[in-house]
């Protein structure tokens, strides 16, 4: 589903290499986790895949369902089925959460040649999905993420994911800033979306999120490369011994 080959990325503004040859394939129905110390390039990978400005791809490719992602505008990537749950969701004063979501859903449907969702149908679906994430009507009315707590912002990301029904979901440190209860709520939301046709890339610093979202494959990223891949047990190893053991082992 998502195939990343030998991806090299530099910052546009300064001469700094961040990714130095990432290889990664996520199959439909699978959950891949990327773990790694701070500064290893995890978030950069998520931004490059979603099309954020400021990064230059110097080598390699990223293909989703046969489409070259790197050639597409961010909105085209989204319409193609890519979704990034932001580590720091952006506050947008003046734009209602509901308006924002409906605009996004219909923009994607339009891009895919589908009919727009009617206001009534949209309302019905969003109410149902918001409820399971414990997002109340008040939160839907408020401006996007404005005045939301850390937990509310992350739940709002998952609500967007649930509404947009992407094929490939990237979760960038979705557990950061969450207490145990909030993390469980978020994980339940993610797990509800798991199915055979959908791929997940879960980026996290800690193992604890993976207790709730069980990965099929765990990758360790360090210094812009994937240095080790394995099963869920790899995450436990990190939890017990930290990154230093693994890093010294592959060095």
């Amino acid at each position: 589903m998502l195939e990343i080959k030998n991806l090299h990325v530099e910052l546009e503004e300064e001469d700094k290499k961040i990714l130095k040859g990432v290889d990664l394939t996520v199959e439909p129905g699978k959950v891949h986790a990327i773990m790694g110390p701070n500064g290893s390039g995890k978030s950069t990978l998520s931004y490059v895949l979603s099309g954020r400005a400021g990064y230059e791809v110097t080598q390699g490719s990223a293909v989703m369902d046969g489409v070259d992602l790197l050639e597409l505008e961010p909105e085209e990537r989204a319409a193609a089925g890519l979704f990034l749950a932001f580590q720091y969701p952006v506050e947008i004063p003046g734009v209602g959460n509901m308006t924002f979501l409906r605009t996004a859903v219909n923009a994607q449907r339009k891009a895919r040649g589908q009919d727009e969702m009617s206001a009534a149908e949209f309302l019905k679906v969003i109410r149902e999905r918001a409820k399971s994430l414990k997002i109340d009507a008040e939160m839907l009315k408020r401006p996007v993420n404005v005045g939301f707590s850390g937990g509310e912002k992350k739940r709002n990301e998952i609500l967007q994911m649930a509404m947009l029904e992407p094929r490939m979901c990237i979760l960038d440190e979705t557990d950061s800033g969450l207490d145990v209860d909030a993390m469980k709520l978020v994980a339940d939301g993610v797990n509800a979306l798991r199915d055979d046709g959908r791929g997940f890339l879960v980026i996290t610093h800690y193992q604890r999120l993976l207790d709730h979202i069980k990965p099929d494959v765990v990758h360790i990223m360090a210094d812009g490369r994937i240095v080790k891949s394995g099963g869920p047990e790899l995450a436990l190893e990190v939890e017990h011994n930290g990154y230093s053991d693994i890093l010294s082992e592959v060095a």
Binding site: R52, P74, E75, F83, G94, T103, Q108, A111, L164
Partner: peptide, 28 residues
Amino acid sequence: EEALFYLRSRGVPEDEATGLLTLAFLAE
């Protein structure tokens, strides 16, 4: 730019996203 990218990453085309942010600015 952050807000613009956020909207685009959700599938809202650039000009539509700009329109939405412009309207939000005036709405105050």
